[in-house]
């Protein structure tokens, strides 16, 4: 009896703590949502209200009417998808070799990949600008994809290495005994086992690129501006268009939410490494 009661109390406490935590993350976003469906005129009302007095989709119509935001969305999506594909193909193969054929040089290689993460991206922005300029890739999709990939690969490499560490070496060896070349063993056995880990890595890479601001600001000007840049510009070019900005931000957050929900199962599986056991 006593024991059950105590368990219940701690259960309530844990749930309360979880609720506080979730709210502290969710409240700003909920406020953003609420603001985006207020009439444009009410957005800067004093004192501010949390809930809209009237629900209006005026802000959404406004941002979708101009062609700037939709085009920026297409740019963002293209860059993020290509960055994810490129980063993943680099990180998965490199991490596999680095973990399965461990030598001193592979350890050093992984370490250096990490070091590049420690340099602030502002410091890398200017040389990157020069580099892309000399390659004629300024303000192009491939240029930005390369820049984002350079930023995303270290983390992807690290994640994939951690996932590969959890794959027993015998799995590859069994496949080789069963008639696979090393590459076939990798493709037919190791990769399918790693789907959870790759989903997690892909998601982080996608979000890195999707949210990236600084490189996009430095390396694009007109044709390939991504959405974060355009959203930021609502407060300069159009005066103080808070309403439009919130609506654009809501729209912008949707893909990440959708992708996260879609990959939820793989992410949990990948993060707990349960996928490789057996």
């Amino acid at each position: 009896m006593h024991r059950a009661a105590r368990l219940n109390v701690s259960g309530v406490l844990i749930n309360a703590a979880a609720l506080v935590l979730v709210l502290s993350y969710a409240l700003p976003y909920i406020y953003l949502l609420m603001t985006s469906i207020k009439p444009a005129a009410d957005v800067q009302q004093i004192p501010p209200s949390f809930f809209p007095a009237v629900v209006s989709f005026e802000n959404f119509r406004e941002v979708l009417r101009s062609s700037t935001l939709p085009r920026a969305f297409v740019n963002s999506l293209t860059v993020a998808v290509l960055t994810t594909a490129l980063s993943l193909s680099v990180a998965v193969t490199a991490a596999y070799v680095a973990t399965q054929y461990r030598r001193r040089v592979t350890t050093i290689f992984l370490l250096f990949a990490l070091v590049t993460r420690m340099v602030p991206s502002v410091a890398l922005g200017v040389p990157l600008f020069q580099l892309l300029k000399s390659l004629g890739l300024l303000d192009t999709i491939p240029g930005l994809v390369l820049a984002h990939t350079s930023a995303a690969v270290p983390l992807a490499l690290l994640l994939m290495s951690a996932f590969f560490e959890g794959v027993p070496k015998e799995l590859e060896e069994a496949a080789r005994m069963d008639g696979c070349t090393r590459f076939q063993a990798f493709r037919k056995i190791i990769l399918p086992v790693m789907t959870g880990g790759m989903a997690v890595t892909a998601l982080f890479t996608f979000i890195t690129s999707w949210n990236e601001f600084l490189y996009a600001l430095l390396l694009t000007s007109e044709a390939t501006k991504t959405a974060p840049i355009v959203i930021a510009e609502y407060n300069s070019v159009y005066g103080l268009a808070w309403g439009a900005m919130t609506a654009a931000a809501v729209l912008y957050s949707l893909p990440v939410i959708i992708v996260t929900l879609a990959l939820q199962k793989q992410i949990v599986g990948g993060l707990t490494f349960g996928a490789v056991k057996g």
Partner: peptide, 20 residues
Amino acid sequence: VDPKDRDIAMVFQSYALYPH
């Protein structure tokens, strides 16, 4: 000769079954 061409089957201590 590569393992795949030796015509040998192996049973591992950990079994190494393909989990997927």
